[in-house]
């Protein structure tokens, strides 16, 4: 089981790395989807089956398809790729990396201080559903409001 976790983690990191360095948008998107699916596996190994399912359905399915639609609508072709090549010189990575590296080191230091095991066991959709419509019912309402606002906003903004 832990083998599955570490393998998926490796795939996930690698795919994400590929995703942020691609020149072609669609390629990047596909790498990101791979990363998401790997994460879904990790959720499964952590016993969060419901989350794993949502990760594939909502994230990899719905959201990424939305990206894909927009990319298709913008009809970005070869010129954009050329543009990306010009923009993404190796030197461009130096600054952000220098900023990100110490942050990562610090996070690692902080995380490694917390020694604890995740508990084996499945938290299934039923548990989640009971909690969701129990103590968290207000959060559900808020999320639905947010989605409604997003819906209206997206409709308004994308109008010609």
């Amino acid at each position: 089981m832990s083998v599955l976790f570490y393998a998926s983690a490796f795939v996930s990191v690698l795919a994400t790395l590929m995703a942020i360095t691609r020149i072609n948008v669609v390629h990047a998107l596909l790498y990101f989807i791979v990363s998401l699916i790997a994460l879904s596996v990790i959720f499964y190994t952590l016993g969060a089956h419901f989350a794993a399912a949502l990760e594939v359905i909502v994230y990899a399915g719905a959201i990424m398809v939305m990206f894909l639609f927009v990319i298709m609508m913008l009809n970005l072709g070869k010129p954009t790729e050329e543009q990306e090549r010009v923009w993404l010189k190796p030197g461009m990575w130096v600054g952000p990396s220098l900023l990100a590296a110490p942050l990562l080191v610090e996070l690692v230091v902080m995380i490694s201080g917390a020694k604890a095991q995740t508990q084996a066991g499945v938290i299934n959709a039923k548990d989640v559903g009971i909690a969701l419509f129990g103590p968290y019912v207000l959060a559900v309402e808020l999320a639905s409001l947010l989605l409604l606002a997003g819906l209206v906003g997206a409709y308004h903004l994308a109008r010609k």
Partner: peptide, 24 residues
């Protein structure tokens, strides 16, 4: 599959790495 316990910090470490990659 028998569920084996995975150290929590490994999961958090993965989350941190992905976060930093996104930030970069």
């Amino acid at each position: 599959i028998s569920l084996q316990a995975i150290p929590m910090e490994h999961g958090l470490l993965l989350a941190a790495i992905l976060f930093i990659l996104g930030m970069v």
